[in-house]
C-alpha cells in the first residue's frame, strides 16, 4: 500500500501543520521506515499545489523533532529516531489538554459523543496492541 498524505486546503488548520501531522502519522505507524526517502520539497509542493515554503516549513519541523534528515537537493530521509523519554508532567498535561480540545471541536462539528468515544476506544486498543 503506497503511503499517502491528505490535506484539506479549506481547513482552518494551516497546511504546513496538516502536512506535519500526516507525515508524523506515517512515521509513527511505520509506513515510512528509517532510511526511506521522502519526496523533495519541490515535488511535494507541486503535487499538493502549495507554495514551496509551506512544505519546507513542514519538513523543518519534522527535522527539528528528529524524524527527517534534510539533505539539500537530495530530498529528505527518514531518520532512525530513538524513542523519546517520557515527557514531563507539564508536557503531558498540555498534550492531554490538546486532546480534550480536539474532542470538543469534533463535538462542535456535530459528531455525536458516543461516536467520538467509540473511535477513541478503537485507537486506544490499536495503540496497546502495537505496544
Amino acid at each position: 500500500m503506497t503511503p499517502t498524505i491528505t490535506i484539506d486546503l479549506n481547513a482552518p488548520i494551516p497546511v504546513y501543520r496538516q502536512i506535519v501531522d500526516a507525515m508524523r502519522h506515517l512515521l509513527v505507524n511505520g509506513a515510512l521506515q528509517p532510511g526511506d526517502q521522502v519526496p523533495t520539497v519541490r515535488q511535494l509542493a507541486i503535487d499538493l499545489g502549495v507554495h514551496f515554503n509551506t512544505v519546507a516549513q513542514a519538513y523543518r519541523l519534522l527535522a527539528d523533532e528528529g524524524w527527517l534528515d534534510l539533505k539539500r537537493r537530495r530530498g529528505a530521509m527518514v531518520m532512525d529516531r530513538r524513542r523519546p523519554a517520557a515527557p514531563s508532567k507539564e508536557r503531558q498535561k498540555q498534550s492531554l489538554q490538546r486532546l480534550r480540545e480536539l474532542t470538543a471541536q469534533l463535538q462542535s462539528e456535530g459528531i455525536p459523543a458516543n461516536q467520538i468515544a467509540s473511535q477513541l476506544r478503537k485507537l486506544a486498543d490499536t495503540l496497546v496492541e502495537e505496544e
Partner: peptide, 11 residues
C-alpha cells in the same frame, strides 16, 4: 475539491 491526496514515495 480542496482535498489533496499525494504519495510520499519519491518518483
Amino acid at each position: 475539491s480542496p482535498i489533496r491526496t499525494v504519495s510520499v514515495i519519491p518518483r
